[in-house]
Design a protein around this nucleic acid. Structure first.
Length: 110
DNA sequence: GCTCTGACTATTC
DNA sequence: CGAATAGCCAGAG
């Protein structure tokens, strides 16, 4: 079982950055990782997979504006609920996130 | 302490 | 433009 939270510094870093993302905004895995200087895009996804419970993981997407694999439907509901700019017709998921408008920057990092 | 897996990314076919 | 391959980092067994 996961038992994260204090087991990895990386984990709390990711969760912290994700927690700073305001509603209607999204960040790519690579972007979140780049904020705290750890280009572990895969590791970021892992954090949300284990720790995702209690964290707005839907605000963290892949490059190109695609939602997490296997969670496109759930993420889509959150985007519509928060007013995240989505682009109709595109990608195998049937939709895509408008990074040009939803892309958020921490503006200050850590 | 080593090995496998994973909600990724970029490049090539 | 879509699918496949290689490279990357971090955590769990």
């Amino acid at each position: 079982m996961a038992v994260f939270n204090t087991s990895g510094e990386y984990t709390e870093q990711v969760l912290e950055v994700v927690a700073q993302i305001p509603p209607g905004r999204v960040m790519t895995y690579g972007d979140v990782a780049w904020v705290f200087g750890r280009p572990g895009a895969r590791a970021v996804g892992m954090v949300l997979r284990y720790h995702g419970s209690g964290t707005h993981w839907w605000r963290v997407i892949r490059a190109g504006g695609h939602p997490p694999t296997g969670h496109e439907a759930a993420a889509r509901e959150h985007y519509e609920a928060e007013g995240t700019p989505l682009l109709p017709s595109d990608s195998p998921a049937g939709y895509r996130i408008d990074l040009a408008a939803a892309a958020w920057d921490p503006q200050g990092n850590l």
